[in-house]
Design a protein around this nucleic acid. Structure first.
Ligand code: ZN
Ligand code: ZN
Ligand code: ZN
Ligand code: ZN
Lengths: 168, 168
DNA sequence: TTAAAACCTTTGAGTCGCTACAAGGTCAAG
DNA sequence: CTTGACCTTGTAGCGACTCAAAGGTTTTAA
């Protein structure tokens, strides 16, 4: 009964913020943030000042979350949204943006593989637990500075532990 | 002459902040930030209130920058510095920290490889420049939400473009 | 000698993409 | 009528810096 009612509501064309969040695998605060940032248009409001969303909003938010899951920046996403909004234009720039972003990812993979190599080298300097004074790892880290050639934007190793789960 | 004088100065045991920065491949603002964060001890001061550093500072900063180049967090680095400071302790925890961090990197590599696969799939949806309305990429991005299983801390694709060059 | 350039200082704000909180308003169920 | 789930705004915080303002000091060179 309650389920049926909920189902009916779900098949309606409007919803409030937390249902939109659930359907888009996002969360309410992120949606308000996107609105502030101009990625989502201002929602219409109910009498009690609640944001009211339509399927169009859901589609746009889904697009954005999809892009974020591919580690694009909000800037990159803004560009893509502009093309979505002007369907008569040539999409060559979309392709270019995607090629660039693929390169961002590929480059970052290369950097991290080099990092892994260096870290395994370092780890090999102290196979057993000994006194810290004799630890090859601590010694190795005191040594020279290896170059870090990073010109990238794909996020870090320590980054998204508690975030990006979709729900809040 | 100026070079010789500079060389003499360089072989002295103390220096000001920008020389320390240069020698450690860092920059002055980062050094002040590390001091605020307690990663570097407070420097002694000259009569005119300038920070004065010794080789010990240079070594500690070199250690920190080396760790950062390996994408460790400042938290991870703090732990390592504690072990450096107590040489009688067993270094097993150092090894464990490094193993964990290697896993952070390996996991991030895996995530990015999956990302690359998805992005290349998407790119294949629009080999040529056509009208945005018919662009397979924009269409693909409007589709379902792929899971993003990130539990990591190694930074992103778009991150370090203008940073981490060492100089300011 | 003096003026400009190159340092140094502190403080505070900005970056990115959220996330979390506080303090309050609204609404349906029991 | 109260509880609790939802909604609102505004603000602050995360990590690891980076930059700018507004001023003090030191070095260089005309
Ligand atoms: Zn990118
Ligand atoms: Zn060891
Ligand atoms: Zn780590
Ligand atoms: Zn296209």
């Amino acid at each position: 009964m309650a389920e049926l009612a909920a189902l009916n509501e779900r098949s309606e064309t409007t919803m409030k913020i937390s249902e939109l969040a659930r359907l888009a695998g996002s969360n309410a605060e992120t949606i308000r943030y996107y609105e502030r940032e101009g990625l989502l248009p201002k929602a219409s409001r109910s009498e009690s000042n609640y944001r009211i969303y339509s399927v169009a909003h859901l589609e746009r938010l889904t697009f954005i979350r999809h892009c974020r899951n591919l580690d694009m920046t909000l800037g990159e996403i803004r560009t893509l949204l502009r093309f979505k909004a002007s369907p008569e234009e040539n999409c060559g720039e979309v392709n270019r943006l995607l090629d660039d972003h693929i390169e961002h990812v590929v480059r970052r993979i290369g950097e991290l593989q080099e990092l892994e190599r260096q870290l395994r080298d370092l780890r090999g300097c102290c196979p057993d637990g000994r006194q810290a004074a004799a630890c090859g790892i601590l010694e190795g880290l005191s040594q020279p500075l290896l170059e870090k050639a990073s010109g990238n934007h794909v996020p870090g190793v320590h980054e998204s532990f508690a975030s990006n789960t979709g729900k809040s």
